[in-house]
Design a protein around this nucleic acid. Structure first.
Length: 431
RNA sequence: UCCUCGAUAGCUCAGCGGUAGAGCAUCCGGCUGUUAACCGGAGGGUCGUAGGUUCGAAUCCUACUCGGGGAGCCA
């Protein structure tokens, strides 16, 4: 049998016989000629079976293949402009691995509910494959960037004794005789790690038991959380914009075919890399009020506000220095204006909302201690976090980047659920 | 939790008071360059569940169940 190659590498084998191992994506037949579109995860190729050119057995066998049947096909690679992808295989042999039963996902349109119930099969279509490829490259770009800048990856726990913040809802579970919760952020643990390693990051799943039911929410999502000792608010923002710029450039460079499959307007993405516009919370409120929004200083932004603000720019927009009272207890107040904190949210363009949230953290023991009182935080579970401010406390900052929201934006997805292989959403735990 | 929309064949939908329909998928037949191929034929449905109105309900009403979109909150 001819050597096995990937469909994605067929252009290197023009004129020679090869074998591909994959699944039948689609078949068209004209009585004496079969067109088999075979995919293998690396690409899609049309295989031509001409009745007069093969044995009767091979011709009959290829006619038996149903959508998504698995097969090994050998043949001669030929360049052909008529074929999608530019290359074709003149079939010389075919081995049926398994004949697929009637495949639920046809080449016609399907509803969301049906597709989500068949997510395990839906993943096979070119669009979903493209998204998974981009997801992998986004992750690779993140790791490349951070690893090349002296960051050390540290893995925080998934099971935690309590919330890292006091507002959001948590998934509760049993930890022998204690209550435990699935993590919703590794940040506080990363602050501890940063005091050991300087610059660290975590990458892992987060769980939020919020009854959020929008196209921007998942119950289980993945987050990158860098934390950096001796880094202040301004440097924090510079690192964030460099990271996001790098990710976009990497995807543009490595996922050209995937972005084309997704129909993404790459011109818009090409405008992203660089330094990002910044707007103070104060200015954002003023701008919103001037543009007809009913909002006051001290209110948090809703999705329509974020979309309107970010819609003014081609690049992600930083909104910085939010009111202290609407932000997390651990954020460092602006020394000149303690009513605001040294934080920023990064809002993606095109209405994708917040993809990064970060801040400089409180380094002062007394101030953090006061915050514990104000927020009625349990001292027994958080004693260790206060400890960090007693033994060589330093200014430090960090941020969290939501992986799926970033992917949804880069891919131009209508809904975040397509950005992860098996989304956990409100009311959906299957498959 | 609230607002809003929906549930009819395997899938996508039409039918909106008078015997349940189409396209695709499946099966059979035809076609040597198809591009969501096409042409002919066949099989396939307790119209989400439970009540109610009516001579008669997929259709009107009520409740429930399950989903979609959005809000709040967040990455």
């Amino acid at each position: 049998m001819a050597p096995v190659v990937n469909i994605g590498q067929l252009h290197q084998h023009v004129g020679s016989s090869v074998t591909i191992e994959g699944w039948l994506y689609n078949k068209r037949s004209s009585g004496k000629i079969h067109f088999l579109q075979v995919r293998d995860g690396t690409g899609l190729v049309q295989c031509v079976v001409v009745k007069s050119a093969v044995t009767p057995e091979i011709f009959e066998r290829s006619g038996l293949l149903t959508q998504e049947s698995s097969c090994r096909v050998s043949g001669l690679v030929r360049q052909d402009d008529r074929a999608p992808g530019g290359y074709e295989l003149d079939v010389e042999g075919i081995e049926i691995v398994q004949i697929a039963q009637e495949y639920p996902i046809t080449h016609k349109e399907h509803g969301v509910d049906f597709l989500m119930d068949h997510r395990h099969l839906w993943l096979r279509v070119p669009r979903q494959r493209a998204i998974m490829r981009v997801r992998a490259e986004v992750q690779r770009a993140i790791f490349d960037f951070l690893d090349n800048r002296g960051f050390t990856r540290v893995d925080p726990p998934i099971l935690t004794p309590s919330s890292c913040e006091d507002t959001t809802e948590l998934f509760q579970t049993k930890y022998f005789d204690e209550e435990a919760y699935l993590t919703q952020s590794g940040q506080m643990y990363m602050e501890a790690a940063a005091m050991s390693l300087g610059r660290v990051y975590s990458f892992g799943p987060c769980f939020r038991a919020e009854k959020s039911k929008t196209r921007r929410h998942l119950i289980e999502f993945w987050m990158v959380e860098p934390e950096m000792a001796y880094v202040d608010h301004d440097e924090n923002l510079r690192i964030q914009e460099q990271l996001v710029s790098h990710v976009v450039e990497h995807v543009l460079h490595h996922c050209e075919a995937e972005l084309h499959t997704l129909g993404r307007d790459v011109e818009k993405l090409a405008k992203v890399p660089g330094s990002f516009p910044r707007m103070s919370y104060d200015d954002a409120i003023a701008w919103l009020r001037k543009n007809g929004f009913d909002i006051e200083w001290g209110d948090d932004f809703g999705a329509p506000h974020e979309t309107a603000l970010a819609g003014q720019y081609d690049q992600p927009l930083f909104i910085e220095r939010y009111p202290t009272k609407i932000k997390a207890f651990y954020m460092q107040p602006d020394p000149l204006r303690p009513e605001v904190v040294l934080c920023a949210d990064m809002l993606a363009p095109e209405g994708y909302g917040e993809i990064v949230g970060g801040s400089q953290r409180i380094a002062d023991y007394e101030l953090l201690n006061t915050r514990f009182d104000e927020h009625h935080l349990p001292r027994d579970t958080y004693a260790w976090y206060l400890d960090l401010r007693r033994y060589g406390s330093v200014p430090h900052s960090g941020f969290g980047l939501g992986l799926e929201r970033t992917i949804a934006w880069i891919c131009g997805l209508e809904h975040i659920r397509e950005a992860i292989a098996f989304p956990r959403t409100l009311y959906r735990l299957y498959p």
